[in-house]
């Protein structure tokens, strides 16, 4: 990523299978490459990665739709409550 300097980087569950140290290394690299003229989309299951890479927006995808959008506090809420409340709220749509 550092070599190719993309305008938009999509990181698809880069954090799965990484231990804490590797996660920190990846997060450090991503933060370092952040510039006013590029953007990043992080796809992740867990809030853990977002402790290190602070997102401007958090979107919750469920059944093929973005059902909720918030700031980084939404990720904390998901970590605490899981996805069940989202599933309940949106299951009939």
């Amino acid at each position: 990523m550092a070599m190719l300097e993309p305008k938009l980087a999509i990181l698809d569950e880069t954090d799965s299978g990484l231990d804490i140290d590797a996660l920190r290394t990846v997060a450090y690299g991503v933060n370092k490459l952040k510039r006013p003229d590029n953007a990043t989309i992080l796809i992740t299951h867990y809030q853990r990665l977002l402790e290190y890479i602070i997102p401007d927006y958090v979107h919750v995808l469920y059944h093929g739709r973005i059902v909720k959008t918030g700031g980084k506090e939404l990720a904390h809420e998901l970590e605490a409550k899981g996805y069940d409340w989202i599933k309940k709220e949106f299951e009939d749509r």
């Binding site: 006013p36 990043t40 992080l42 796809i43 979107h59 599933k87």
Partner: peptide
């Protein structure tokens, strides 16, 4: 530009 978006979900 300049934004970081996280996409989460089950």
């Amino acid at each position: 530009p300049g934004e970081v978006h996280a996409i989460m979900g089950p």
